[in-house]
Each structure stands twice: as structure tokens, then as C-alpha cells.
């Protein structure tokens, strides 16, 4: 665990029925740091991400964000935290099909209470930086997979989050598109000083991170030495 930890988790346990997804996992990430969470399918890495982001409460253990215990917060408090401080990128099916790419990217900012004009202004800036401004009026069904992921990254970064959670962000893309999306994600995160929790099972993805954590059998092991 680093001294300047932004988000930490200790002894996380989470089971789905009889299956233990997490079995005493520890984790920490500092502001602006990019951490790759790696492991085979079914190892519990997505569950770790969900627990860290306050999407699902752990059965045991604690998650602390800037000193506040996330696991002790109410559902409404965790939702507010996710709106204000966290951003998300998933593997697929994350954009609202009825909204245009611009409206999708602006949605979290609007949900946080910003006006439509302000939200779309911020979203447009990110779409431009992620090189998808030209498809802003298209619907998700009308753009390619790579473009869709970039829109999703713009959506994750538009509210200026402190932590971006990316769950297999390149899993549905070809290698060329995947590389480009990762470059843009990590560059954008570094520019905005956002920490990134990057869940992946691809070793090449880890090359974009500052540190790697391997999850196996529900336990997390820091490849830099800490566990």
C-alpha cells in the first residue's frame, strides 16, 4: 500500500452463491497512477473492480476512498460518489443506443447536475481529444467498435473523475484498434491526473500501466512486491 493512496481495499471477500469471487483481496492505487489488474477469466478481477467502485458491496473487508470507507456508505452515497469522482469504461454494450455519441458522453456530467450546454461542451472537448468528434451526432449503432470505445472513454473522463475503472476496455476490439484505444485512455488519464484501474487478461495491455496486480483465486498480488 502506498503512502499517498487514493483508493485502498483490505481483506475483500465476496461470494456469489457458493462461489468465492474474492477471498481476502487487498489493493491500493495512488492519484494519477495506472494499475493493471490482471488474471485469467473467473479469477475475480471484475468483482474486485466492482467492489472498489462501490458498485457491489463486499461481504467482508473495507474499501477506503480518500479516507472515507466506501463499504459503509449507503447506496445513494455510493451512487453520488460514482457520479462525482469515478468514471467507467466497459468491454461492450455500455452506450445508450438511443442517445447520440455526444449525448452519451455528456450524460454523466448532466446526471451530476450540470446544464446541458456545459455538459455537452465538456463532452465535445473529450470527443475531440479522443478523435471521434466527427461522429458526435451519430448513434452508437452507427459507429465502429473502436469509435464506440473512444466515446465511452470520453464519457468516463468528461466529469473529470479522480479514478477511471476500465473493465476489459479493449476486449471486443482488434489489436490495432485496441492499442489505439489504450494509448488514448492512458494519455487522457495522465493529462487529467486521473488514476486508472485497468482490468484485463491481456499481458500487452499491462504495458500501458505503472504497476501490475495479479488476481488469482480471489486474492490480489502486486507484481512490484506488495500483496
Amino acid at each position: 500500500m502506498t503512502a499517498a493512496a487514493l483508493l485502498t481495499a483490505e481483506g475483500l471477500r465476496k461470494s456469489y452463491g457458493a462461489t468465492a469471487a474474492l477471498d481476502g483481496a487487498d489493493f491500493s492505487i495512488a492519484a494519477g497512477e495506472i494499475v493493471a489488474v490482471m488474471g485469467p477469466s473467473g479469477s475475480g478481477k471484475s468483482t474486485l473492480l466492482h467492489c472498489l467502485a462501490g458498485i457491489v458491496p463486499p461481504d467482508a473487508g473495507t474499501v477506503r476512498y480518500r479516507g472515507r470507507e466506501v463499504s459503509a456508505m449507503s447506496d445513494a452515497q455510493r451512487s453520488a460518489l460514482r457520479r462525482a469522482d469515478f468514471g467507467f469504461v466497459f468491454q461492450f454494450g455500455q452506450l445508450v443506443p438511443e442517445l447520440t455519441c455526444l449525448e452519451n458522453a455528456a450524460l454523466p456530467v448532466r446526471l451530476a447536475g450540470a446544464s446541458r450546454k456545459e455538459a455537452e461542451g465538456r463532452a465535445r472537448e473529450w470527443l475531440r481529444r479522443l478523435e471521434v468528434d466527427d461522429v458526435r451526432h451519430h448513434r452508437p449503432g452507427q459507429v465502429s467498435g473502436g469509435q464506440g470505445q473512444r466515446v465511452a472513454i470520453a464519457r468516463a473522463l468528461a466529469p473529470s473523475p479522480r479514478v477511471v475503472f476500465a473493465d476489459e476496455p479493449t476486449g471486443a476490439l482488434d489489436s490495432l484498434n485496441g492499442e489505439r484505444v489504450l494509448e488514448l485512455l492512458t494519455e487522457a488519464a495522465r493529462e487529467s491526473r486521473a488514476a486508472v484501474v485497468l482490468v484485463t487478461h491481456e499481458a500487452r495491455v499491462a504495458a500501458y500501466s505503472d504497476r501490475e496486480v495479479v488476481v488469482r483465486d480471489g486474492r490480489a498480488r502486486d507484481l512490484a512486491g506488495a500483496s
Binding site: 451512487s79 457520479r83 468514471g87 467507467f88 455500455q94 452506450l95 446526471l111
Partner: peptide, 15 residues
């Protein structure tokens, strides 16, 4: 799935 994603980034139930 879209509903779950919307919830992930903090969309209120009321919304």
C-alpha cells in the same frame, strides 16, 4: 446491461 452501466456511473433510480 445498459441499465447496469447507467447504475455503475451513478444514475439515480428516480432518473
Amino acid at each position: 446491461r445498459q441499465l447496469a452501466v447507467l447504475v455503475a456511473f451513478g444514475t439515480r433510480r428516480a432518473t
